[in-house]
Amino acid sequence: MDPVLLLDVILLLLAVTTAITAMAIRDLLGSVMLMGIYGLLMAVIWADLFAMDVSFTEASVGAGAATILLLSALTRTGTRERTGGDHHLPALVVVLITGSVLIHGTSQMPAFGDPQAPAHIHVAPHYLSQDIGKVSQKSSDGATRRDFGDHVPNTVTAVLTAYRGYDTMFETVVIFSAGVCLVLLLRPRSPLRREQADE
């Protein structure tokens, strides 16, 4: 059997099992820990798919930051789930229908790593050779010149901050807005306001 396929199947089974267990158990502390393990497993799966930047982000956000956030939330609440495990039948039907539509959709997607896939023949070659920007057009001596003069070998960073700089800028603004909202919502009440509230 293909060892890569075997590894893929084992990782997928582990991830699915961890996700289902995280939902099923009633102990919230254990659930948070399982979510952290799930994040780490997803990071390994991304690395397995050669998506190193995504893997890195998943490991730091999914397994690190999200776990710490949920743990800090747990210190404010209890560690036991209060509601019973009653099943909502319409929700199950909706989830099953949506899931089967999504799985049906994947059947028409190109095979993994197919060099003729639309994603690989449209703009990706230009991203990889880094010859879209103005710098490469300025070269008058006829020599092929890359946009960043080989200063930026990591194409992911090049796409994120140069070719799609607007996108990343507004992502940063979204994160900033989240931080500002938190500061405004969770700031301690000023003594003056507290006195007014007491009256």
Binding site: M52, D53, S55, F56, T57, S60, F148, H151, V152, P153, N154, V156, T157, A158, L160, T161
Partner: peptide, 11 residues
């Protein structure tokens, strides 16, 4: 090192 290897500002 984000321009050279995996990583960047977010991570």
């Amino acid at each position: 090192h984000g321009e050279i290897g995996p990583g960047g500002g977010f991570q």
